[in-house]
Amino acid sequence: MRERLVGLIGNVVAEVNERRDEKIPTENLLDVSLYGDAGVFDSMHLVNFLTLVEEAIEDEFDVEISLTSEKAVSRRVSPFSRVSRLIEFIEEEMNENAETTAA
């Protein structure tokens, strides 16, 4: 699962990079900070990026999750501080989604 998510986010970053002058580094993807002091996105581009990730997840796993929810934003450790944390958040959301669907 984790590997598929890393690959999926890598693809989205590649798509975003096509239109960026200042490319987002892809070699240490998990350590890339998305938003904040060292973040690669401003708030608007962050939303666009997360929307692309949501779509990719929907296409690949056929699950709809929100990465821009109040829950995502209000976490003590922000899922947007590093790609690895975003992946953790996605996994949690997908698990929760699976449980709700099963129940």
Binding site: V47, T51, S66, T68, E70, V73
Partner: peptide
């Protein structure tokens, strides 16, 4: 609606 920029 989203919780980052209000709306997209």
């Amino acid at each position: 609606p989203n919780s980052i920029t209000g709306q997209s």
